[in-house]
Design a binder for these strands. Structure first.
Lengths: 211, 211
DNA sequence: TTGTGCTACCGTACTTTGTACGCCTTACTT
DNA sequence: AAGTAAGGCGTACAAAGTACGGTAGCACAA
């Protein structure tokens, strides 16, 4: 009665990899660790992927597909844009530890390209010039990614660490002391919504003046 | 007549490391490469730093010191805040490839802490509650960092690569096609200024309503 | 002059991680 | 029954961080 383990597939490898990344971080993911999680010898992974990079790419694709899958909403261009970026934000929040992957990979996956195409469609249809549409994408994209990196940072360098480094020096930092733990407590989704609205409003005004 | 090379010092190691990071990227920096650049054997580096991480930390400190050194400006709180973030932005633009270091390290260096203390001083003095001050920092910080990561991305995945991946699929992406190269051409500093202004304006309004 | 100790630097070797290469087993086909 | 392809494995090597124990040159006291 042999122990029959789950068969190794691309999908299973990707799922396990994402699990490791989410719980232990990107740097904890290595081929031996991943193989062990799958109950298999390291070299077996290479039957399904040519190398580690390909696995990371597949992880990015998987994440992107799940969050950016089918975003086709109605409404004003503001509402539709907001929805598109809400999807991106969700992605970034769901897997902050995979962010470096997402940054370099998402827009190069089919789902990512679709998302981008959709966004450009919305903006051009609303009357933005190609130039202005690119600007909207750049600014909102940077803002959204930035929030993701802030999230990642708070995972990798917990507030206690920073506070620990400050003990004994509070006298030098009276204002930091006053703000204190507020720096660690953060209703990020609410702030994301605020920032997005403010920027969108600005773009709307520009559009009105130009159009 | 022996060839006398520059003596190895902490400063020299940091400068060489930053040079390698700036020109070849973080992943190109390893102890053997760094030693070779200094004209020295790898283990000699360990006389000046306990390990590689310490070198990276010193690089972060050096960068932070240069850009956030002494920022003590007069003016309205908006002007002072803008100046502080302009410094951060400058830092991020000057060494985009060192961004991952900066993200985890800058606020943990003396210069970074000073910057933070200064910022909190400006905001609290302006009448923001500690809570609101933290919010300003979070949002503007994420925005600024996000732009930095966008810069890094454009270095690591050049526009030609992405465009190359799209050839043959343009029919599927009519809107992307219309925007085309505009996506790669980006007056980022101008957009940084715009974004910063818009967000600051919003914070000013909130302050007015609350105060 | 000789010993003592300190600073800067180096050689060797071990560990971790990615992966090239080729073998083995299983299951299905003919 | 024999062939064959897919999936899995064992061995081995290269790149990179670094522990450990030197050595060489200099300063200075006895």
């Amino acid at each position: 009665m042999a122990i029959t383990r789950e068969p190794l597939t691309r999908l299973r490898i990707v799922e396990l990899a994402l699990g490791i990344i989410d719980t232990e971080g990107l740097s904890a993911l290595n081929m031996r660790r991943l193989a062990a999680a799958a109950g298999v010898q390291p070299m077996s992974l290479y039957h399904h992927f040519p190398n580690k990079d390909a696995i990371l790419g597949a992880v990015a694709e998987s994440i992107a597909g799940a969050a950016l899958g089918d975003q086709r909403a109605a409404g004003t261009w503001q509402e539709r844009t907001r929805l598109l970026f809400a999807g991106l934000y969700e992605l970034v929040q769901a897997h902050p530890r995979a962010l470096p992957l997402i940054t370099t990979g998402v827009l190069r996956t089919p789902s990512g390209r679709h998302w981008m195409e959709e966004l450009m469609g919305v903006l051009l249809e609303a009357g933005f010039t190609p130039d202005a549409a690119a600007r909207v994408y750049h600014l909102l994209g940077a803002f959204t990614l930035g929030l993701g990196y802030a999230q990642l940072l708070s995972l990798e360098v917990p507030a206690e660490t920073i506070i620990g480094e400050l003990t004994g020096h509070w006298a030098d930092y009276p204002n930091l002391l006053r703000v204190g733990l507020q720096l660690a407590i953060w209703d990020q989704p609410a702030d994301f919504a605020t920032g997005l609205d403010v920027l969108l409003e600005r773009f709307a005004k520009e559009l009105g003046e130009a159009g």
